[in-house]
């Protein structure tokens, strides 16, 4: 089947999509955006988190056909051209990135948190990132990065 949707502001048409295919597969294999990662295929790891009409979801659990006519935003769409989003900068600065495979999903999820909650508390950060597994960092630096990005955003908003 054919699926038409918008990804990172660009209208996309994917052809020959199998009806049981996930949005994640379409993004990675058909649209050429492999930033969202496939690590469990069951919504347990969060590596494939993308925005679907502004709400973070696991792209592996969205049927491709369900994305018809909707707006998707992936890790590739967080930066403004060559200018990284503050959450991306904070991940690099804090050393929250190691192997980088969990990073794209974490970034989208953290981006959403900071957009919704201007100054998130630690429990709020932990709760927001509860479904994003990381096997390298032990999470500590990831939490630091979210705190830093949130603080900067709050500072900029004052």
């Amino acid at each position: 089947m054919r699926v038409n949707f918008t990804v990172n502001g660009v209208e996309q048409t994917a052809d020959d999509v199998w009806e049981g295919e996930s949005l994640l597969y379409v993004l990675r294999e058909r649209v050429g955006l492999p930033g969202s990662k496939n690590a469990c295929e069951q919504g347990e790891c969060g590596s494939c988190t993308v925005y679907l009409d502004g709400t973070p979801v696991c792209a592996c659990l969205v049927a491709a056909g369900q994305a018809e006519g909707r707006e998707v935003r992936t890790v590739e769409g967080l930066a403004d051209g060559e200018r990284l989003d503050p959450i991306q900068e904070a991940f690099v600065e804090c050393g929250a990135v190691q192997c980088g495979f969990c990073t794209p999903g974490l970034l989208v999820q953290a981006h959403d948190l900071i957009e919704r909650v201007p100054e998130p508390s630690d429990p709020e950060i932990r709760e927001a990132l509860a479904g994003n597994l990381c096997r390298c960092t032990g999470y500590e630096k990831i939490l630091d990065a979210v705190r830093l990005a949130a603080a900067r955003k709050a500072e900029a908003g004052r």
Binding site: L33, P34, G35, V75, L84, V92, G95, V97, F101, T103
Partner: peptide, 23 residues
């Protein structure tokens, strides 16, 4: 020195290509 990871930007921008992602 606590230098930033040199491939950090590629990884946070979703540009780092892993083995299955080469075109």
């Amino acid at each position: 020195a606590p230098l930033d990871r040199v491939e950090g930007w590629d990884k946070v921008a979703g540009r780092a290509r892993y083995s299955g992602e080469q075109r």
